[in-house]
Amino acid sequence: MPVYEVNNVKLFYKINGSGEPIIFTHGHSMYHKQWEPQVNELSNDYQTIVWDVRGHGYSSLPSGKVDPEDFSRDLISLLDYLEIQSTVLCGLSMGGHISIQTAIRYPERVKGLILIGTPFTNTFNWFEKYTTSISKFSLRLLPFNMTAKWTADVISKINPENHAFVMESFSKMTKDNFLRHWSGNLRMESKNDLNNIQCPTMILHGEKDNMVGRQQQYLTANIKDAEFYTITNAHHLTNRDNPEDVTDHIQNFMKRLK
């Protein structure tokens, strides 16, 4: 199992194919297998690299408070370890936000951004400020298996196969790691830095994804020349709900970068 150690953490990664690299970063509570539909197709033409964010999948999580700045540091460390000078980053949800922050903090390392169902703040409006506080409190009280089942139920309405995948992803986390990482995730903030992104950017949003829909117009308007596309018949786990359309958009984006 390919693992590298950096910043006091063991991080899992996996490489398929060859050619221009694309780094895929999963959403919170998920792990690298989220990207199987894209890896299976895109590895024919590109080098696809997936990894598990600290505290997820096969990656460890050090004790103590989680610093969200470590997420982008870990990603850059992966690029250094693999000797990749500049690449395209593709992320969904939290993985998209990690990709955003990497492009902001390390612009010379990011050739392009593909953002799927991506938030850039947890304080966008009164609704988010309210629900963020509620979630931190309620998730501590709920049994972890209930949190997993509720999440799986919500994001498997379009693709029932997502249910087993989400339950599998949660099974690789402890409740303590989940809560500590979720607290760090909620402290990620990029609203005032979006205009610093200079690389070509494509934004994809599932038409039925009501989790981050309210942020997508602002995200598109505040990243220079960002492209926006709606993915039909897709909820928040957009890349698995409609894998064909998402993969086609990624392929077209990569061709436009050449």
Results as ranks from 00 to 15, higher is better:
residue 222 N to E: 14
residue 28 H to Y: 15
residue 211 M to D: 03
residue 225 D to Q: 11
residue 45 D to F: 03
residue 46 Y to V: 01
residue 240 R to E: 03
residue 121 T to E: 05
residue 210 N to T: 11
residue 22 I to D: 02
residue 144 F to I: 04
residue 141 L to E: 10
residue 39 V to F: 02
residue 237 L to T: 01
residue 193 D to G: 12
residue 177 N to S: 11
residue 238 T to C: 05
residue 191 K to Q: 14
residue 126 W to R: 14
residue 140 R to Y: 15
residue 198 Q to Y: 09
residue 72 S to R: 04
residue 79 L to W: 02
residue 157 K to M: 06
residue 162 N to A: 01
residue 141 L to F: 10
residue 185 N to A: 07
residue 85 Q to S: 13
residue 111 K to H: 05
residue 37 P to Y: 02
residue 147 T to Y: 01
residue 8 N to Y: 03
residue 166 V to D: 00
residue 232 T to C: 12
residue 105 R to N: 12
residue 216 Q to T: 07
residue 72 S to K: 06
residue 88 V to D: 01
residue 200 P to R: 10
residue 186 L to M: 10
residue 28 H to P: 09
residue 126 W to I: 09
residue 154 V to T: 08
residue 145 N to M: 09
residue 74 D to K: 02
residue 96 G to C: 12
residue 224 K to L: 07
residue 5 E to I: 11
residue 229 Y to M: 07
residue 172 K to E: 06
residue 254 M to R: 02
residue 97 H to M: 13
residue 193 D to H: 14
residue 32 H to F: 13
residue 213 G to K: 05
residue 173 M to S: 07
residue 123 T to A: 12
residue 227 E to W: 11
residue 258 K to C: 13
residue 104 I to C: 10
residue 67 D to W: 04
residue 129 K to D: 14
residue 244 E to M: 15
residue 13 Y to D: 13
residue 66 V to D: 00
residue 166 V to E: 00
residue 13 Y to W: 09
